[in-house]
Amino acid sequence: MSAVSETHDNHHHDHAGHGYGDNSKLYIHIFRDDLGSKVGMWLFLFTEVLLFGGLFFLYFGYRVADPQAFHDAALNLDVMLGAVNTIVLLTSSLTMVLAIVAIQRDSVKLSLFYLAVTIACALTFLVNKYFEWSAKIHHGIYPGSDHVAEMPQGEISFFGLYYLMTGLHTFHVIVGAIIIAVCMVFIVKKHINKDKYIILENSGLYWHLVDLIWIFLFPLFYLLH
């Protein structure tokens, strides 16, 4: 009757062999390799780290070449906005992980609530970013502007990297928020539930990576002046 019995997922090991002891019921085991999907997710995260890593290496090289310019350029950034966004992202990481705890305990509504808060944090981050960038652009600081063209070479590099790295990161925040919204739909439709939440876990991994990258972006761009 049951073709394959797989209990790779360590959350379910206590159910292992259930189908064999009791013949009065029909058990249908659906092949599911949670560990496999998690390792696949980590492989993807690895490529993400390499993507951002390459940019961090560029930052490192340019900073060593002209530390004074990086010091001066960083004075233009708003530490308060950066710090607020750090706290917002850390909080969103917390609510993401709490949403997983909630689904493990079958508290569907609580899980949805935490995911909604996570998305709200992502939107707050984006609004802050909007204000931050508009203020910069208003002051004529954007790639290719006349104002930036007159700056020393090191500061041009700094702002180029600033827009590229925080821009790419912000893009990840948008993607992450969409993924979390999809997870909420899956929870409502019960595709994600108490016994099957690997999609939520993997989405969480992605979201934490976005947080992780910001943990390094914040001090390197906003604080080191």
Partner: peptide, 8 residues
């Protein structure tokens, strides 16, 4: 902290 605990 994020890797070990949040990312499990």
């Amino acid at each position: 902290l994020v890797l070990n605990y949040f990312m499990h």
